[in-house]
């Protein structure tokens, strides 16, 4: 495992910690898209079906359990916690799940490595993760006052994807015969979705302004 992969995973973990900090400590999920969080829970549930059958390392297994557990915990908080759920911007978070789920599933049936249920679901999870941030980005654009934790949460998620790109470049040059086109192309699409957000995040940070996105 190279340094970019490790930093990518740690950034991903940190993004979850930041989100849980906001939800659990401040008891607020204002500005957070439940649609995106539900899509992430679906991404991990379909990708980690092999958790007990395909052992890579203790590190991988522990991380899988953490991402599965936290994603469902976040969804539970936003839907059912009596204080947190009242801070959810339901009227603004209007993106429809099926608009992302159906095309991703269709694509997974068409473009995959093997036609087995596990393989199709794994490929589906890769495609879905690439676009799962979309409802969150739409919600951010509609939010007038983006708080620091929400801005940092999305920044950390984008940074995690950027670090994975660097990880793949290192692996391409250091591991013989290493190719994973489905993961690479989805990863590039996923990182590109953050480009606009990054631009305004850095611009506002440099100008010492509160984060705001043009609508």
């Amino acid at each position: 495992m190279n340094i970019f992969r490790l930093c990518g995973d740690m950034t991903h973990l940190l993004s979850v910690v930041v989100l849980l900090l906001k939800i659990h400590t401040i008891k607020s999920c204002a500005g957070i898209s439940l649609k995106t969080q539900e899509l992430y829970a679906l991404v991990f549930a379909t990708r980690y079906l092999d958790i007990f059958t395909h052992h890579v390392s203790l590190y991988n297994t522990v991380m899988k359990i953490i991402f599965l557990g936290t994603s469902f915990t976040i969804v539970w908080y936003m839907r059912h916690h009596k204080v947190v759920r009242q801070t959810y911007d339901k009227e603004q978070d209007t993106f429809k799940h099926y608009m992302l789920i159906i095309p991703c599933f269709a694509l997974a049936l068409l473009i995959k490595t093997k036609f087995t249920p596990l393989e199709v679901l794994w490929t589906f999870s890769i495609y879905l993760e690439a676009v799962a941030i979309f409802p969150q980005l739409v919600l951010l654009q509609r939010t007038k006052n983006i708080d620091n934790l929400t801005g940092n949460y999305v920044f950390l998620l984008g940074a995690y994807r950027g670090l994975y790109l660097l990880n793949w470049i290192v692996r391409y040059f250091t591991e013989k015969g290493y190719r994973q086109w489905i993961t690479w192309i989805s990863g590039i699409v996923q990182t590109a979705l953050y480009a606009d957000f990054f631009y305004y995040y850095i611009k506002c940070w440099r100008n010492n302004e509160k984060l705001h996105l043009p609508s």
């Binding site: 092999d50 395909h54 991988n60 991402f67 490595t113 994975y164 015969g177 290493y178 994973q180």
Partner: peptide
Amino acid sequence: PKKEELKDEL
């Protein structure tokens, strides 16, 4: 096996 099938990333 091909690396694609190893699924060693998260």
